Simulated scan of single mutants.
Amino acid sequence: MDFSNDESMGKDSSISLFFRKIANSYQRILDTSTPYKLQRWIFAIVLIFLFIFRIISAQGYYVVIYTLGIYLLTQFTLFLSPQLGTLEMDIMEDDMEDEPTLPVKSDDEFKPFIRRLPEFKFWHNTIRATLIAFVCAFIPFFDIPVFWPILLMYFIAITYLSMKKQIDHMIKHHYVPFDIGKKKYSQKVDK
């Protein structure tokens, strides 16, 4: 009888069980952190500042911080974008002026703002990307010599152009992706 297959299957199942336990623990941490929005974002900002401190102290890894910046800019743009009526649809909408938009009058149909990238996924992607960049900032292979002022100017130009495009889209379709300044309705409880 050949027992080598049984031993390898036992190793495979124990390895998969180990990774399943890690995945379950990770998911449990994510689930318990969901209601703590302010604390999650404070953690993300602290992590980003630690990463920036690493970049400043190392005086290098400018490509890593540039890559992280572009990724976070892309995630932020997706966070600001509505799920329907995205920027890509504007090209098609130029031909169709009868396309529905968010209501601007009291008799218009109400369509709630649904983000293309939910807040929790935006936070989760920010944390993961920052941790990956932080690890890359300790690997000498990623310390590519570049003239960092050019990267900074290019990043500022990309940020300006993408935010201008996003703000124009928000003005065109009459939506604000934030709750700041919106009416708050309270429910009356009958006793």
Rank of each mutant, 00 (worst) to 15 (best):
D2Q: 14
S4F: 07
S4M: 13
N5A: 08
N5K: 13
S8P: 04
F19P: 00
R20T: 12
K21W: 05
R28P: 01
R28D: 10
L30H: 04
D31W: 14
P35R: 14
L38G: 06
R40T: 00
W41C: 12
F43Y: 12
V46H: 08
L47W: 00
I48V: 09
F53V: 08
Q59E: 10
Q59D: 02
V64W: 00
Y66C: 02
T74I: 04
T86A: 09
T86N: 11
L87S: 03
D90K: 13
D90C: 07
M92D: 10
E93Q: 11
K105A: 10
S106D: 12
S106Y: 07
P112H: 10
F113Q: 01
R115M: 06
R116Q: 12
R116C: 10
F120G: 07
F122D: 01
F122P: 08
H124I: 04
T130W: 09
T130C: 02
T130R: 07
L131S: 06
I132A: 11
A133V: 00
F134G: 01
A137C: 09
P140T: 11
P140Q: 09
F142R: 00
F147M: 13
W148F: 12
P149E: 15
I150C: 01
L152R: 05
K164T: 04
H169L: 03
I171K: 13
H174V: 13
D179Q: 12
I180E: 15
K183E: 10
Q187I: 13
K191M: 09
K191Q: 10
